[in-house]
Amino acid sequence: MGDVVPFKKPLRKSPNRGMCQHGFHKWVVCKEKQFDVKQGRLVTVYRCQRCGKEKVTAH
């Protein structure tokens, strides 16, 4: 009979991103930057809590 080899569970490549890899971000309003100088109007900056990606919407 052969030797029994214990297999390890494969690790995730980026454990901190989690669901963000599939487009499920957790958007939170970032209040540091509320005015866009180039456009000259108020903007809302959203930052993902998990991966740090940002998206901007203008009013």
Rank of each mutant, 00 (worst) to 15 (best):
V43T: 06
K33A: 08
K31A: 10
M19Q: 12
R17W: 10
G18D: 08
C51A: 00
T44P: 04
K26E: 14
G23I: 02
G18R: 09
H25K: 05
K53Q: 10
N16K: 15
K31M: 00
F24E: 11
G18C: 07
G18F: 11
E32Q: 13
K26D: 14
C30I: 08
Q49I: 02
V29W: 03
M19F: 07
C30N: 14
C20A: 09
E32Y: 00
E32F: 10
C48V: 11
C30T: 03
C20Q: 03
R41F: 03
Q34H: 01
C20L: 00
R41Y: 02
V45M: 15
C51M: 07
N16C: 10
H22A: 00
K33S: 09
H22V: 01
R17S: 03
F24L: 12
G52F: 12
H25N: 11
Y46T: 07
C51L: 08
R50Q: 05
C20P: 02
F24K: 05
E32L: 12
H25Y: 13
R41L: 04
C30R: 10
C48Y: 05
R17H: 02
V28N: 14
D36Q: 12
K53H: 11
Q21C: 04
G40C: 08
V45G: 01
K53A: 11
K31H: 14
R17G: 03
G52P: 00
L42Q: 13
G23S: 01
W27Q: 13
Q49T: 05
K26M: 13
V43Q: 03
V43F: 09
K33L: 15
R47K: 15
G52R: 15
K53Y: 08
E32A: 13
F24V: 06
